[in-house]
Design a binder for these strands. Sequence first.
DNA 1: TTCCATGCAAAGTGTTTGCACCCGG
DNA 2: CCGGGTGCAAACACTTTGCATGGAA
Lengths: 161, 161
Amino acid sequence: MDTTATIIQRVREEARRRNVRWTNQREAIVATFVASKDHLTVEELHRRVRLKDATVSAATVYRTINMLTEIGVAVRRQFGASASAAFECAVDRDHHDHLVCTICGSITEFHHDLIERMQVEVADTHGFLLSHHRMELYGTCGTCRIQVDPPAAEDPAPVAR
Amino acid sequence: MDTTATIIQRVREEARRRNVRWTNQREAIVATFVASKDHLTVEELHRRVRLKDATVSAATVYRTINMLTEIGVAVRRQFGASASAAFECAVDRDHHDHLVCTICGSITEFHHDLIERMQVEVADTHGFLLSHHRMELYGTCGTCRIQVDPPAAEDPAPVAR
DNA sequence: TTCCATGCAAAGTGTTTGCACCCGG
DNA sequence: CCGGGTGCAAACACTTTGCATGGAA
């Protein structure tokens, strides 16, 4: 089990190895990022970092998150048609895909080994050497289903599409 | 089997039903779009439309492709980290997912029923009511594998990047 | 002291929109 | 004619980048 501090330490060492300087801004950004367990947009990450150090600019957050993505500490995601990218910390995390609620936007992670194996098979069948994939399932989460679909539904069914 | 003309006719009727006017620009854009069997960006579609009618603006292509997407004639896709969206004609096409070659960018469509069923199952397990999904498999296509991985490689390997 | 990193603002990209004019129904 | 459609340019949202300055090593 890695504490936030341990992860930061690791990133710091990786940075040193690459002759990347360790600044206060990076410390603040990385600390905030690895402490966040959800999927963050740059804007949200910037907002949280500002609480610690109000001088950090958005440009630096972008530069830092890109650096973290390059060294494999962050993973970039792009959900739905949302314009902005979301990032999640990749340290000590296994590969997974996402279920996205189209009502409330909540994100649930899942891993399905058989699907993964079949994806390799599909790639194989078409002569592709699979390197990675992107799979997002969109729908209505349990909580929203209850609110959208009241228990005693007497309304005519909505037109399918 | 539907000819391009038949499809245009259908779109035209759908437009009339919605009190959407049929202009020369729309005729040109829709005709070009349904005749294209590949995945087009707006820029590429605009380029092709201009060959027929040089006065059509990009704004109109955006407005028209958005209209086509709304009425279900076009489907918007977003491959990889590419900034621009790709559109494909949805008329007379069944649902499918994509294999994308990360070397040459070629796109292969596929459908795997078992995967689809398991996706529903995954959603179910997490209390989600699945509405749609997005699945793209990235890798190296057969053609590129041969060129990237030459049978008898005598050249020094290029620096990875 | 040497460069990399930063903040700022400007530039870039892909897409949307306000507006005056145009034209299909 | 009437109201939606169009071209143009400006606005937009997100992200990157040039530049002068600042700070880590």
